[in-house]
Design a binder for these strands. Structure first.
Lengths: 349, 349
DNA sequence: TCGGTTTTTCAAACCGCTTTGGGTGATCAA
DNA sequence: TTGATCACCCAAAGCGGTTTGAAAAACCGA
């Protein structure tokens, strides 16, 4: 034991100091009924005075619970991008974990090792529950975790997985459908979709929504207007330039993230177009703290949904699953808000 | 014990299966010399066959080490921004942790509770070491952790703290000094600094570097040209607009982050200025995976330093500190690279 | 062959907490 | 007074590993 000087008193020491048995002290501290009110108070006071903190490792071992939730962040070996929404989601989830007295353990692993990581975390008993990030189409992790029998939540969903599982997602499809409808209402018919990687489930759903709206309006989708890649500013810029260079350029654009919208805006204004007048843009806004949609008034018309709030909610749900492991799967679908900004207007071409 | 079905065999079971004592099995698995080579092999084979994974909680309790590193992310209650470089730093650090068999435990806490969080983490024995993020001027956390006697690393430094401690930082001062010198060489004399919050240590150092260069060139700094705030795109935009509206607008700009540079660029191009020709911009580029400086060629002239690499290195250093707790403080100063992009050019005013 | 090493193995204590299965004394109804 | 009932407390046995101290086995030279 290396840090004994700082690791504080043990329960046993506290017990001898109080002339009580460890049993009673433990019970007093954990709120069990079979202990005298006065005794309990005495114990609580002494614990506070001695600055007693139970050793989590020992507690874990004895109870069989680790009071920790695992988050596994896959780092794709091909395109090494760390999902930027991750930080805000974590922040939201973390709030609820710490409130409930849970730790969060993070594993950053190349996607090849992901399965082994999950197995390890569970087998070593390091976590009581798991959060799954960035689900792909037909994500194999879901079946894996169901096999391991540990409570878990998916942030997003995985099309193609048909067994029930717990998830929290935004209504990407409806969201992009509405945004597209809104642009159609404004008279736009050539609408571009500047999407994220379509191996990601959310991107696929957004495309579906976009296609739904076009279809309902009797407009045949033009493959030239649909782009998909890792969401960065330069990508948005490049997509914008290339789309404008088409023989029949689009008059409106859907951007799958704020940062893509930044790049898109640059391409459009570089071409001398004014957003909202000459061309329309709707962005999806995850409400990331460091990427606000304007300072006070929203710059972009946007489909808004706070990732931070999603993290909070997902954590809350996961904790109830951990609390009652036999609980049936919990799901939660969040609608986005379509908020009007200065980036959309009637089609005047 | 809730997950016994998945928690696999215990060492004791493995031992009886092998007709050996737990002692021997433990030693064989942990590579102690006092065990016959054949026996060791037999044990290793059996362990693999039985899919044995030692229970970390038990191991922790017995050894007094948790094999986990804590990262505490402060969420300022006033301006609730999650540091965007955090995700990439974590990704880098996580690589080294998992390679070394360490877990990473994350605590997201409002800055008011920060001290209590550190105390708890240590007292409960949840971590063997701590990483401190986002140091402020005279950051009180350093003294706190030194008092607690646990190994820790600071990502960045804290001016005003004079006791030695372990840190990894980039040479912010030199970096911004060089960038300023470069702009001076190009004939710019009115150079704006669009900085981060100057309660943050890094921002203060960048300003020092900027001032150093101006001073060496005999140019009196103009307070109107120095801005400081939370680093977002709208902030960059606003700063750019306001700076251009000055009676004597600057001809060059230093931006403390890529995203600020995005906003700055927008303000400048909106004003009809072309970067590199009419006006110059140098950005600091943390090489965040989702915020690249251009697709193939760098757009902005930038002071570059990979936060991901910093995370890797900091983790490595922290792990050696954890390995030998009596090791004197470890420090590492990384220089940035000044990379030429298309955003700088001779002053033609 | 034998005492002395060296190698290999083991029984048992321990890490700090929880929890089972009694005890003890007080209270109460009969 | 007595047996039953409670309220309260405790000793001891875990949880799943590591580690100490000692014993057994194998090896060695004389």
């Amino acid at each position: 034991m290396r840090f004994e000087q700082i690791m504080g008193v043990t329960l046993k020491e506290l017990a001898t100091k109080l002339a009580l048995s460890p049993t009673t002290v433990s019970r007093a501290l954990n709120g069990y009924p079979e202990v005298n009110a006065q005794t309990r108070q005495r114990v609580l006071d002494a614990a506070r005075a001695a600055n007693y903190h139970p050793n989590m490792r020992a507690k874990s071992l004895a109870t069989g619970q680790s009071r920790a939730i695992g988050h596994v962040i896959p780092i794709s070996t091909s395109h090494e991008i760390v999902n930027p929404i991750f930080a805000d989601f974590i922040a939201g989830a973390g709030e609820n974990y710490s409130r409930a007295g849970y730790d969060m353990v993070l594993s950053v692993v190349p996607d090849a090792d992901e399965e082994a990581t999950y197995r390890n975390l569970v087998a070593r008993g390091s976590v009581d529950g798991l959060m799954v990030h960035g689900p792909l189409l037909q994500d194999s992790r879901i079946a894996l975790l169901q096999g391991l029998g540990i409570p878990f939540m998916v942030h997003g969903r995985s099309s193609g997985v048909n067994t029930p599982y717990s998830w929290l997602d935004i209504n990407n499809r409806r969201s992009f459908c509405r945004a597209t409808e809104f642009l159609l209402d404004l008279g736009h018919t050539r609408i571009a979709l500047v999407n994220g990687l379509e191996s990601m489930d959310f991107a696929m759903r957004r495309r579906s929504g976009y296609l739904d709206a076009l279809h309902a309006a009797g407009i045949a989708p033009d493959p030239m207007l649909m782009r998909s890649s890792e969401m960065t500013e330069p990508y948005g810029h490049k997509a914008g330039r290339e789309l404008l260079a088409l023989p029949q350029p689009p008059t409106a654009f859907l951007a799958s993230s704020m940062i893509v919208a930044y790049g898109l805006r640059r391409a459009l204004t570089d071409a001398g177009l004014k957003l909202g007048r000459d061309v329309s843009v709707i962005a999806h806004d995850d409400d990331l703290s460091y990427m606000p949609n304007g300072l006070d008034v929203p710059q972009f018309t946007a489909t808004c949904s706070s990732v931070r709030a999603a993290g909070r909610k997902a954590a809350e749900m996961l904790l109830t699953l951990v609390g009652n492991p036999d609980h049936p799967p919990l799901t939660h679908l969040m609608e986005t808000q379509l908020v009007l900004g200065y980036s959309t207007g009637r089609n005047r071409t």
